[in-house]
């Protein structure tokens, strides 16, 4: 996998269960017990209806590209030397849209509505990020 010098997220009480699930390579998101919708990013209340009860639910791992951008210049940022970096917004099958990176794709696979699947990048002992690859049948 392409190396990217990544700025690291802060792990808090609101998101520690999420980051534990990605470390286990079995990403879960909160699904509201009231409206049954998923939301992203993790937080103390349902973004859709305000309910404060949820169930951490395993993701199917599939989604489609909502948009993408290939970053070619990033002067002054920690990943300055790692460009080009492909940034994607992925609409998960469960509904939420997440920002991530796409790896190991062929020309033509970087396209809006293209199907992708979750992969995991273990950045260090604490942080594993959700990243994506093309979904090939």
């Amino acid at each position: 996998m392409q190396h990217i010098t990544r700025p690291l997220p802060s792990i808090t009480q609101d998101n520690e269960d999420f980051w534990r699930s990605t470390r286990e390579h079995a990403a879960r998101l909160q699904r509201c017990n009231a409206c049954e919708k998923f939301w992203y990013y993790p937080g103390p209340v349902c973004h859709n209806c305000g309910a404060r009860n949820w169930t951490w639910t395993l993701l199917s791992g599939v989604g489609t590209i909502y948009s993408y951008s290939v970053l070619e210049r990033a002067k002054g940022n920690p990943y300055e030397e790692d460009v080009p970096i492909t940034i994607v917004l992925v609409r998960l099958a469960e509904g939420p849209v997440v920002m991530s990176n796409l790896f190991d794709y062929e020309p033509g696979e970087l396209a809006i509505d293209a199907e992708v699947m979750i992969d995991y990048e273990d950045v260090n002992d604490e942080v594993t990020l959700i990243v994506f690859r093309p979904a090939r049948r």
Partner: peptide, 17 residues
């Protein structure tokens, strides 16, 4: 900084998306 910047989002990248 938690769910976007780790994926190398810069201001031009946001607008690129």
């Amino acid at each position: 900084l938690d769910y976007e910047y780790p994926f190398a989002a810069t201001i031009p990248a946001y607008y690129g998306l």
